[in-house]
Design a protein around this nucleic acid. Structure first.
Lengths: 233, 233
DNA sequence: TTGGTCAACTGACAAAAGTCATCTTTTATC
DNA sequence: GATAAAAGATGACTTTTGTCAGTTGACCAA
């Protein structure tokens, strides 16, 4: 099978978005030779919590949710990963099983990079290690902020924040609706609430003129209004 | 001023508890020469959120809370740091201002290690960098679990979990009471609830025979009972 | 001892969030 | 296009959590 130019890591622009950009050409070539491209259909799982991962997944296209089921049996989405993000890195480094499941929110294209390719590079390329370290330090800060939000903010505030996040991170389509379309249940799982309350709160926002909906699609009408709401008016 | 043996990092047993153990003798000597020992009294702040830290703090004794004020004006304790832990590492590595404040929960003794001593070591000692990386990866996992708990569990469950955490992490005094004594307000700030509800829930646990209290001190009577409670019976 | 301060506690109420049942709309599939 | 299945939406209700106002109790300093 003929290899396309862009299917080689050295030529893949995606790596510019993550720690892999700290790698040298030869290293990228080695990774490219051992990587496996995969297509994941919407709704399919890349991995499930509790699994020991044999490598990491580099997202070339599509979006995935990373979630965990609490002791109460409810799913909480902890992160939404898209183009350029590397999934599974953390559990690989700490040599623990993943505590998160990854499920595709739409059709995805990912590259699976075997564990050794990463751990060997961490051993012998300090620049790479430092890049990951810096990235993780930043993620840890975000996680702390997230904790404070979940603990101290109301569903109202958190939903407002999530809508703004979806808007700035994934943008809008040509009609102005959020480009990433999530089910109400998924939105609720990000916000950390029940689906019904999520729906009700969306309806309230709509009534207040903050958003507009069309089927499951959502359009943010009043960014600064949501901004105020998220900070508690 | 005569230097005590144990005031030199090379001889300090504390470093065995953290990433500093990956350093070589000469490196530890250099750190020792530039570090500054400080005593912090109960209630004093080591640093406040928003500050740019000039280095990290290595805890030799005492306990500190790391907290952040939410947009709603309420404080959330994100972590409790004690002997052996290094504070401020994360924000230093990501080159951001701290998002957390550190306040002593009892009298503390800490060593301040200037930024350069750490960043230089990250530059030239891969083993050290990797040790920090691994540690951060683990912290990130804990943070994710924390998020899910805050989002999905009730105050009941979270308080039960916090009591068990305090018991296993800090142990008990000779009478069996939790060795780390926190105010009700601080416990509430860890759990992520109002002080009143925290007090009420403690009273309920007491009535159920799960705990016993004496002034502000708390004794865990029924570990497995709390365990069950935390997982939702 | 006395008063002052602060933390612990309590009651009454309001607001927020969760749950269950049901109905409607959308979407997918044959 | 018919039909089944899934997702969205709503009503009624319960439980959980937050808030405000106040009392009690411990501890400290004058």
């Amino acid at each position: 099978m003929a290899e396309h130019e862009e299917s080689r890591c050295e030529n893949c622009i995606i790596r510019e978005l993550n720690s892999l950009k700290a790698l040298k050409k030869e290293e990228l070539k080695a990774i490219s030779d051992s990587k496996v491209s995969r297509r994941i259909k919407k709704g399919e799982a890349l991995f499930k919590e509790g699994e020991k991962l044999g490598g990491v997944y580099c997202v070339r296209g599509g979006v995935s949710k990373l979630s965990k089921i609490s002791d109460n049996g409810k799913d909480q989405i902890v992160k939404i990963a898209s183009k350029g993000e590397v999934m599974g890195q953390r559990s690989m480094i700490s040599e623990e099983a993943t505590n998160l499941s990854a499920v595709a929110l739409n059709d995805m294209e990912v590259c699976f990079i075997p564990k050794d390719q990463i751990t060997d590079r961490i051993q012998d390329n300090p620049a790479f290690t430092q890049a990951i370290l810096k990235h993780m330090a930043h993620e840890l800060k975000i996680a702390d902020d997230f904790i404070v939000n979940m603990a101290q903010k109301t569903v109202n505030q958190r939903l407002a924040e999530v809508l703004l996040y979806l808007s700035t991170t994934f943008g809008t389509d040509d009609e102005g609706y959020l480009a990433l379309i999530l089910s109400r249940a998924d939105i609720a799982d990000v916000v950390g609430t029940a689906t019904e309350l999520c729906i009700r709160t969306l309806a309230k926002f709509k009534k207040q003129g903050l958003i507009e909906t069309k089927g499951k699609r959502i359009k943010v009408l009043d960014h600064s209004g949501l901004e105020k709401l998220k900070d508690g008016f």
